[in-house]
């Protein structure tokens, strides 16, 4: 069953143009100019229960805008979006009880209250039964190793501790649609892993739909089975992570350690149909097209058998591949 459907979803922001310099700013007092920014353009996709979707894109690509439209915070300028049978922007209470948002850069909790008081407040507004509330809060705080902090005021917690509390708060009412905007920002490696595990288990148990945006690509790789790649507000890729990597990962790397990197060795390496190579000391890193990897590998072994100390084929980590594709804007 399709639980999220968007069709030609677009959002345009009207933003005043701030002129540089005093004279120009003064001129702006009498005539204000605006520019229109297409944050999201004609985006169409569907999601089903159990989907764990990573949204990838550089800063300003439109990731957060997309998430805000999906959870009803902002209205689309055009197009349509249906989440769980509801139009998010109508903000029906029944819809809002199905949704949860964690934005790492903006606290969802009241900083003047303790985490426990925040949880109690959420219990009350989401009408969570007492038993479910106690079980969920206890289980999550134990898993995230923050049970001893629940009586502390949110403003007195460290950044990482606050993020943990945000995650607990987001799951208190067991939402069916979970939107996470940079959920592991500022967390240590162990906490990142705990959060990923909790989220992964949560989605598996409850059949929830998960949307994650993160510049920590391990979040995407560990959590998501599908990715949306956005560039300049436009959806460039929508599909499985493995398929994405297979499609875009066209080269492999061969690393060779030699006794001494002589000109003869350099000449041989350069003549083996490589894409790119790098000589650092006695290490040679060679980029080869995937289709020629066996041929090149065999040729190198034959020609350099007496010089090679060690040779290995390195497949790029998915995170590195994603990073490279995003930075170089190769996803078209």
């Amino acid at each position: 069953m399709r639980s999220i459907i968007t069709q030609n979803l677009s959002r345009v922001y009207k933003s005043p143009v701030e002129k540089t310099g005093l004279a120009r700013s003064a001129k702006g007092l009498f005539r204000k100019e605006f520019k229109y920014i297409n944050a999201v353009t004609d985006m169409s996709f569907c999601a089903e229960h159990g989907d764990k979707i990573g949204i990838l894109g550089l800063n300003g690509a439109g990731k957060s805008t997309l998430i805000k439209m999906l959870c009803g915070i902002i209205a689309p300028t055009s197009g349509s979006v249906v989440v769980g049978g509801y139009t998010p922007f109508q903000k029906k209470n029944d819809f809002l009880r199905l949704v949860s948002l964690v934005a790492g850069n903006k606290s969802q909790l009241n900083p003047d209250l303790s985490a426990w008081d925040n949880f109690r407040f959420l219990k009350s507004i989401y009408r969570v039964p007492e038993r479910q509330f106690s079980e969920t809060a206890r289980k999550l705080t134990l898993l995230l190793e923050c049970a001893n902090l629940i009586d502390k005021q949110i403003r007195r917690l460290s950044f990482g501790e606050r993020i943990k509390m945000e995650i607990v708060a987001a799951l208190i009412h067991r939402p069916k649609f979970l939107f996470l905007d940079e959920p592991t920002i500022g967390l240590d490696v162990r906490s990142q892993e705990s959060i990923r595990k909790i989220l992964s288990d949560y989605c598996a148990e409850g059949d929830a739909v998960l949307f994650v945006t993160s510049h920590n690509l391990s979040d995407i790789v560990d959590l998501c089975n599908r990715i949306l790649v956005i560039d300049g507000g436009t959806l460039r890729y929508d599909g499985g992570l493995a398929a994405f990597c297979a499609h875009y990962n066209t080269t492999s790397e061969i690393n060779i350690e030699v006794e001494n990197c002589t000109p003869r060795i350099r000449e041989i390496v350069a003549g083996t149909g490589i894409v790119d190579c790098d000589f650092t000391g006695n290490m040679i890193r060679i980029q080869v097209e995937k289709t020629f990897i066996t041929t090149v590998f065999r040729e190198l072994i034959q020609k350099l058998s007496n010089d090679i100390n060690k040779i290995q084929i390195i497949e790029p980590r998915t995170e590195d591949l994603l990073k490279e594709l995003l930075i170089k804007g190769k996803v078209k």
Binding site: C71, G72, I73, L96, V99, L101, K106, Q108, I125, Y126
Partner: peptide, 12 residues
């Protein structure tokens, strides 16, 4: 400052 998100995403 865009801080209304907390309330707009909750049944409040």
């Amino acid at each position: 400052n865009g801080l209304l998100d907390n309330e707009l995403v909750r049944p409040i």
